[in-house]
Each structure stands twice: as structure tokens, then as C-alpha cells.
Design a binder for these strands. Structure first.
Length: 362
RNA sequence: GGUCCCAUCGUCUAGCUUGGCCUAGGACGGCACCCUCUCAAGGUGCAGACACGGGUUCAAAUCCCGUUGGGACUACCA
């Protein structure tokens, strides 16, 4: 498998690139680099209400800052809408999908009712037998999900996970507005982009048994899956803004070195014995999915700060001086005044770096 | 509620696959001392964990079952 490994990082542009996203991207990147494969960047913007161009820019900027370079892309799912529609209709023609005319409001109401009665919240299959061939009004296309047997994931991190197909929903693959849904476009793209390993957050485990039957119905072989543990805040809930800065770019502004952040992140959920510091080259050489932790990790800003101080102390003064420039300019210093014949700020870095934990402090 | 995942110091983790080398190791943080004009940095040391209960076994942090506790998902979001 080594030489044709293909993995992807597929963020949705609904906000800035956050810490959790970077870690997912990092693990994919390391896996690709370790195996000499390809790392693909794909923007999942099928939710046109929440996706923005600014978010795409922020994601690309964050990726560049962290040094996670991609070999293909960025692909945008909105450029591939016709493809998804075509594939969805193909499924309909084969009798593997059906039109559903239940409105979102009706579905919502029925879900509430079911919840009140303590019943299952899954779609009741009302339109399954209707056999609508050409809907006149708004209609969504639903995948006819298998209800017998089991779907098994041989997860590269968590091991074997078994789901009863009976709990699977007939998920919507094409919205009534004509746009494909996440679960469908992901499958099409992963298949057509020849993704061999899907490495993503374990908040997706429950999506996987819904996607595997889709691969099969479409006639594709499913990729291998590896679900990474989540990153939590100090209170053990999912890491979010209230736990402090979660945007990668915010760390850049706070004076962190990208190498320090990346080094911190790689140790969150992965380890190589007792080693704490890794050069990029070492990370690539030593990275392996079977040393990825299966339990969630709490984000610890203090350890990140320590690592940052270590990197400031150990990096080439010239490099640190270079990184310092934008911060100094921000404070009104002229670039020209900083580049002195005697070495300028580069010369004072060694004196300052013993006590500074961030570039901002320096 | 349903489905699924997880469980070693406060936190990140080693060890778990292939039980014995574990009186459970390292790192961050904490505390103490040393160094120092001060604060950092550095050095040395200390405290600190196998969630609980049952098995299996000569032997369990490691294997099995249960309990408890966390978490994720349960959308015409991704």
C-alpha cells in the first residue's frame, strides 16, 4: 500500500481553522508523508448558508502557517455539484434511492413526537413505498438504506466496530434545493479521489456505517477508516471558544512558533515512548497510527507555552528575528532600523530568549 | 431515550496487542532547595495515578464480564 496512500483533509469553511482541525490535518499529512503518499485538501462547502470565502481563506492561511502542504487541491465541493447530482440520480434509477416529499417541518414535528413517546428518532420511512417517480413540488432524494445484517468498521485506531443495519436511517443524499448532503458528497469524493485511508475525528464514527453502504451501492470499495480521539477543554467538554483561543491564527498572533504548536499537537493523542520534542523529519519517520491513543485528550495551554519557550530558545536566532519582524513593525518600528550592520535584532535575540515564552513577550 | 466510543498522576502520556522485567516510567504544572542584585532561565529533589466490583490465572495496569463515570452522534450541518 505504501506508495499509493492517498489521504485528505476536508474542512468545511464555516469558520476559522481550529486546533482540532489542524490536528486532524497534521495526522493525515504525517501519514501521507510517512508512506510517501499524497495529501489532498478538499473544501466541503455544500452547506451554502454557512460556508464563506473568508473562511476558506482563513483555512488556507492556517494550513500555510503550520507548514502542512498539500499535493492536490484545494478541491471545492461546490465545483462538483453536477457530479453529485448525476450520481444521486443514478442511484434513483437503480431503485437504490427514492423521492421523499416530507417537509423539514413535518419531519421535525414527527421527531419531537417520537422523542416524547420515547421511540426511535429515525425516519419513519413514510415515502419509501410511495414510489414517486417525478415529484412536482420540492422533494429530497433519500438513500434506501439496508435494514438487514450488520455494517462493520475495522477501524485502524479503535479496532472492530459493529453496527446493526436496523438502526440505520434512510439518509437524504440530495436536498430539495438540489444540493448534495455531506454524507453523500463525501462518499463520492473519497471514492473518485481514490482516497485509501479516511483519517478523521471520532465524532464521525456514527457516520461511517451510513457511508459504507453508500460506497457499496455506488459500486465502490470503501477506504480504510481511522477515527482520531477528540480534543477536549479543561472541563472535558469539546474544545470551543469558551476554553480560550481555538483558532490557529490566534496562536500565530499570540507569538507562538508554528513548529511548537505542531509539536504540541502531535503529542496530543500520539506518542513515541517518552519523547516530547520532535523535528518535522522525526515526526514523519516515527508517526504510526497504531500509537494513536483511543481516548480523548484535554488541551493544555501551559504545556504548549512551555514547548513554545523551548522552541524560542533552541531555534536559530536568525529565524526568530525574522519571525519577530511583523510584531515589531506592529509597534511602529521601521524595518530598516531593525536590520543593522552589526546584526540588528538578530544579535539581541540570544539575550532575550532566555526569559520569553512567546514572540509577543520578546 | 437510541446507537457508538472511551477510562493509568491535576493534564499529556509510557506500559496493555505477545499477563511476570511495574515497589507503574517520562513530560507539563505544583511544591521545596541550589544558583542569582531582582524576575525568569538552569540544576536538584518531593508530592501525585492503574475508576469500582467480580472473574480467568501460580501471577493482571495488562485478558473476560458487570457497574459507575465521561464523551460523540442521533438535521434537507459538516
Amino acid at each position: 500500500m505504501s506508495e499509493n496512500v492517498r489521504v485528505r483533509f476536508a474542512p468545511s469553511p464555516t469558520g476559522y481553522l481550529h486546533i482540532g482541525g489542524v490536528r486532524t490535518a497534521l495526522f493525515n499529512w504525517l501519514f501521507a508523508r510517512h508512506h510517501g503518499g499524497k495529501f489532498i485538501l478538499r473544501i466541503e462547502d455544500t452547506d451554502r448558508d454557512r460556508s464563506t470565502d473568508e473562511a476558506i481563506e482563513a483555512i488556507l492561511k492556517g494550513m500555510r502557517w503550520t507548514g502542512l502542504d498539500w499535493d492536490e487541491g484545494p478541491y471545492r465541493q461546490t465545483d462538483r455539484l453536477d457530479l453529485y447530482r448525476e450520481k444521486a440520480m443514478g442511484l434513483f434509477e437503480q431503485g437504490k434511492a427514492y423521492w421523499c416529499v416530507c417537509t423539514p417541518e413535518e419531519l421535525e414535528a414527527r421527531r419531537k413526537e417520537a422523542q416524547a413517546k420515547g421511540e426511535s428518532l429515525k425516519y419513519d420511512g413514510r415515502c419509501r413505498e410511495r414510489g414517486i417517480t417525478s415529484p412536482t413540488g420540492p422533494a429530497a432524494l433519500r438513500f434506501l438504506s439496508p435494514q438487514d445484517g450488520q455494517t462493520v468498521i475495522d477501524d485502524l485506531i479503535k479496532g472492530r466496530i459493529v453496527f446493526e443495519n436496523a438502526v440505520l436511517d434512510d439518509l437524504i443524499i440530495l436536498r430539495s434545493n438540489g444540493y448534495a448532503t455531506y454524507n453523500f458528497s463525501v462518499v463520492i469524493d473519497d471514492a473518485l479521489m481514490d482516497i485509501t485511508h479516511v483519517i478523521r475525528g471520532d465524532d464521525h464514527v456514527n457516520n461511517t456505517p451510513r457511508q459504507i453502504p453508500l460506497f457499496e451501492a455506488l459500486g465502490y470499495r470503501p477506504p480504510q477508516f481511522a477515527h482520531l480521539p477528540m480534543i477536549l477543554g479543561a472541563d472535558k467538554s469539546r474544545l470551543s471558544k469558551r476554553h480560550g483561543a481555538t483558532s490557529v491564527l490566534a496562536y500565530q498572533e499570540m507569538g507562538y512558533l508554528s513548529e511548537a504548536l505542531v509539536n504540541y499537537l502531535v503529542r496530543l493523542g500520539w506518542s513515541h515512548g517518552d519523547q516530547e520534542k520532535f523535528t518535522t523529519q522525526e515526526m514523519i519517520e516515527k508517526f504510526s497510527l497504531d500509537h494513536v491513543q483511543s481516548s480523548a485528550a484535554v488541551f493544555n495551554p501551559e504545556k504548549l507555552l512551555w514547548l513554545n519557550a523551548e522552541y524560542i530558545k533552541q531555534s536559530d536566532p536568525k529565524h526568530v528575528a525574522q519571525l519577530l519582524m511583523p510584531f515589531l513593525e506592529q509597534h511602529g518600528y521601521q524595518r530598516e532600523g531593525l536590520i543593522q550592520p552589526q546584526g540588528g535584532i538578530e544579535a539581541v535575540v540570544p539575550h532575550l530568549r532566555e526569559r520569553a515564552k512567546t514572540l509577543v513577550e520578546m
